[in-house]
Each structure stands twice: as C-alpha cells, then as structure tokens.
Design a protein around this nucleic acid. Structure first.
Length: 453
RNA sequence: GUGAAUGUAGCUCAGCUGGUUAGAGCAUCAGAUUGUGGUUCUGAGGGUCGUGGGUUCGAGCCCCAUCUUUCACCCCA
C-alpha cells in the first residue's frame, strides 16, 4: 500500500511547525493584549448549521461527512424516497464565524456581552487547490459580538497593523462598507442585484472597466445603470476625495449615506489613535467577503516589494444578524480572520524565517549510552539535569559512538556528555562542546551550572 | 465546477527519431576509525518509470482513461 494524503492537505514537519507556531503565537499575543479570550468549537458541525450560510458557491465547497452505519444498504432500501440527510447530516466547518455565531446562541446565558473571542483552528473547503489555496487550512479569528460600536472596527484595524508589523510584512489594509455598496445598487435602481454588482466591481483592478461592464450586462444589469456607474470606476485620489465623491453620488440613498458616515467615524477613531494611514486604503470596489456582512468590510493584501503574493491574507467585516438565523436576533458582531497558511507562504518567499533564528535546538545535551552498567549511572545524571531545567536526553541504545555523535550533530545538540568507566570512577564526566570540538571534565554540580545559562 | 501543464530512487533531475539489464548528484546505510560528529575515501541498499488499459516484435518515451501536483478561471484565508 502506497501512503498518500487527501488532495489539498499537508503534513507539517518539525521545522515547519516551529515557523507556524511562531505566526500563531504572534497573533495570539496581540489578540490577548487586546483582551480577547480563546474558544474552540468542533471540527464538524451539523450540516443544517452550515448550509445556506456561505452562498451558493459555499454550499458546493462544504465537505460533507458520510453517515455512520451501512449507508449503501439504506440507499438500496429507500430507493426513490432517499433524502440527502440519509447520506450525510454532518459537515466539516467552512469557517470560524458561523460556528461562533452558533456558539454564542447556545451559550448566550453564560456570556456577558460584548464578548471578545478569538479562535485558531483549521477549516476545510472542497476547493480545487492552487497557489495559496488549500483544502485544509488554519484561520485565526477575533470577533467582538454584542456591540454596534465602531470602536470595535477601529481596534480590529489596529490589531491587523500590530500583527503584520510584528511579522515584518508590508501590507495594505483595504476597507469598505457594505452599506455603501448597497447605496450604489439603490441609486442605480438595481437593489436586487447587489450581489452581482458587487462581485463584478470587485474585479475592477483585475480585469478593467470594460470587462466589468460586460459582466454586469450579462448579469442583467440595465445599460442605463451601467452607464450611471462609470464615474465609480475612475475615482482616484485620497480617502477624503473618495468620500467627497460618494457624498454626491449617494446623496439620494439613506443607506449609502449611513455607510459613508460609518467609514468617517472609523477613520476618525484611527486618526485619534495616530494610526499610520499609509497602510489604509478605502477601496470602494472592495466587495469580497461572505454574504452575511452588513457594515464594514476588511481585506488585507501583501504590499511588499519582497513578495509576489497577490491573494488576500486576511478578511473580515461586520455582520448584524448572523445569530438571528440561530434564534437570537439583534446581536451585531464584527470580526477578522488571518489566513496563516498564506502568511506562512509569504514569509517563506521573503526569507523572513531565516532572519528570525527560530530553529533553536530543543535539546541542550545528549548523554552517550555506553551499555547497561553506564546507562543506570547516566540515568541519575539525566534526572538531575532535567530537575535543573536543562533540556537533556540519553541515546536509547548502546550504539556505536560514531552513530550517537552523528545523532547529536544531526539534531544540532550543542553538548554531548560521555559517561564511561573512567568517568563513573572519578565522578568527573566528559563534556564535549559540539561547536568547538573541545572536551573537558566536570562533576555533576558543576555541569548543571555550566549548562544552565 | 471549467481550461491547461506535470509525474523517472527519500530529494533535485538526466534518459537520443520507441531498441539489451533505466542513470547521476545529494541524502540514507555500512566500512576505513571497537571512546568521538561535522571534512575525506571506499562500498552498499533503494525503481512494477503515478496507476490502469491500448498500439507495437519491442514502451520510461506513442494513444486513451484515471489519480497527484502546479497554474489560470470561478470563488476565497
């Protein structure tokens, strides 16, 4: 049998784990500094919790878990009356936000709102893998639920900046507001086509105005509306310029004006915080994000000369009624989600890990195994070293010295301790420094001091 | 889901218009060196050429299917 793993999944070896943990730990530190508390939810959810939450496309990408028991037989027996739920009623989670909404509703009586939670767990999507896209990947979410305040948005933006600055990655934080997009659709008299419109204009940088217009028409947006939309495509300049344009463009849309106001409020907060505005980009074509977003939308792209990465490394936004579908209405939340697998790829491309000096050896000293008599003596030394908090291990077999030394070398263990006949009699153990090759003899107490620093 | 490329030893790759027993470097293991790693030297192991069919006297090479990986679209972290 040839070993294999499912498409789009990966093994992580020790060196990769050191790096992944560094990213995870960096994000965790920032989240906790801002007062977020960690939760975890199950890898699988009941399908009814997942279906219909991510749009048509999302439903297709859900991994469904086959029911246990003799499903094939069930199909044969039921034939025409077979239902999907007879085959599968559980699925792997697609993101962390929907399970969080479910969590909040189920635990509403234990939670004091507003609730700041973070969560770092894998999610699964049955997408076709490609660059920066995996079928199993980690999301690191922070959400504040139970508060309408735009202060939360401001803090999340701060978090994003803190994390990428700690990771030494140059980024551009794109913000927009779903209400502005809704206002645009309203002004165009195409409120029902808001999804098609936003999906199309999101592609502006990528495919250009001409192709966007083409797509809009193919989705049934009227020529008149497409015509009216053109000024949007040529808006340039700084944030206040863009907002001034929107003031006029959306003058007759209440929801649009609300969106503009929200953006202004958020920017005001960030101004007070002396936020580095260079990182921020109000992008009125930014539409990405799931269907459930209702206010702010965030997306982060790498903006660093050392990287060629173009896909987003973070997404997020405000959702006013995600808990409503689970029976708890009028609870608003806002959150962000780091994609650490993509961040890993970016950091690898920029050689950032090498500079971090992360691959510290885990073991400080290896005790050579000379045989059963010496083993017992070595074991007591080993115990003393470990009690003194010195990372130590003994080679488990009385293998040839060459082999044991090669082992220490391979794992970059800086010291080797030799305890043979001579050492046992004198009580002075031979310590070899693997970097310099020098050897010296010391009593156990002395060794503990030497190796401790 | 749509379109394209790819697959030869653990890794990176050679392999001629189809022609004996498929090679190299690195890595691994063993020995040179029975209490000393990283350098050096010597040797060894490791392949149903992704898998299954087909064409042919003969297939790593040609054809079909399928899977993997990669890239683009769709969508997304």
């Amino acid at each position: 049998m040839k070993p294999s793993i499912p498409k789009g999944t990966r093994d992580f070896s020790p060196d990769e784990m050191v790096r992944r943990n560094f990213i995870l730990q960096t994000i965790r530190n920032v989240y906790e500094r801002y007062g977020f508390r960690q939760i975890e939810t199950p890898a699988m959810e009941n399908l009814s919790m997942l279906e219909g939450k991510y749009g048509e496309e999302g439903d297709k990408l859900l991994f469904r878990i086959l029911n246990s028991g003799d499903v094939t037989n069930e199909i044969k027996e039921k034939r025409d009356s077979i239902k999907t739920s007879d085959l599968s009623e559980k699925g792997l989670r697609y993101d962390l936000t929907v399970p969080f909404a479910r969590y909040v509703v189920m635990h509403r009586n234990e939670i004091t709102f507003p609730f700041r939670r973070y969560q770092m767990q894998p999610v699964w999507r049955a997408d076709r893998p490609q660059k920066g896209r995996y079928r199993e990947f980690y999301q690191c979410d922070a959400d504040v639920i139970g508060s309408d305040s735009l202060l939360n948005e401001a803090e999340l933006v701060q978090i994003i900046a803190d994390v990428f600055s700690a990771l030494n990655i140059g980024v551009s934080i794109k913000i927009n507001n779903r209400k502005i997009l809704a206002g645009i659709a309203e002004i165009l008299g195409q409120a029902d086509k808001i999804i098609d419109i936003t999906v199309a204009i999101d592609k502006l940088d990528k495919i250009g105005a001409e192709k966007v217009n083409e797509e809009l028409r193919s989705k049934g947006v009227s020529d008149d509306a497409v015509q009216k939309m053109q000024p949007l495509f040529s808006v340039k300049g700084n944030t206040s310029g863009k907002l001034a344009f929107l003031d006029t463009f959306l003058e007759k849309s209440d929801i649009g004006k609300k969106g503009i106001e929200e953006v202004r409020t958020l920017l005001n907060y960030l101004d007070t915080l002396k936020f580095q505005t260079a990182l921020l980009d109000l992008d009125i074509t930014l539409a990405r994000g799931l269907n459930y977003y209702t206010g702010a939308i965030f997306e982060v792209k790498v903006n660093d000369t050392r990287s060629t990465f173009t896909s987003s490394v973070l997404g997020g936004g405000r959702y006013d009624d995600l808990t409503g579908i689970f029976g708890l209405p009028d609870v608003s939340g806002v959150g962000i989600s780091f994609g650490i697998d993509r961040i890993y790829d970016v950091m690898l491309e920029m050689d950032l890990f090498d500079k971090l000096n992360l691959n510290k050896p885990s073991t400080k000293v290896l005790l050579v195994n000379f045989g059963s008599k010496e083993e017992h003596y070595a074991l007591t030394v080993l115990q003393k070293l470990r009690a003194a908090d010195i990372k130590a291990e003994i080679y488990p077999d009385a293998a040839k010295m060459k082999k044991q030394m090669a082992y220490a070398d391979a794992y970059k263990i800086p010291y080797v301790l030799l305890i043979g006949d001579e050492e046992m009699q004198s009580g002075k153990l031979t310590l070899k420094n693997m970097t310099s090759g020098e050897q010296s003899k010391h009593e156990v107490e002395e060794l503990m001091n030497m190796l401790h620093e």
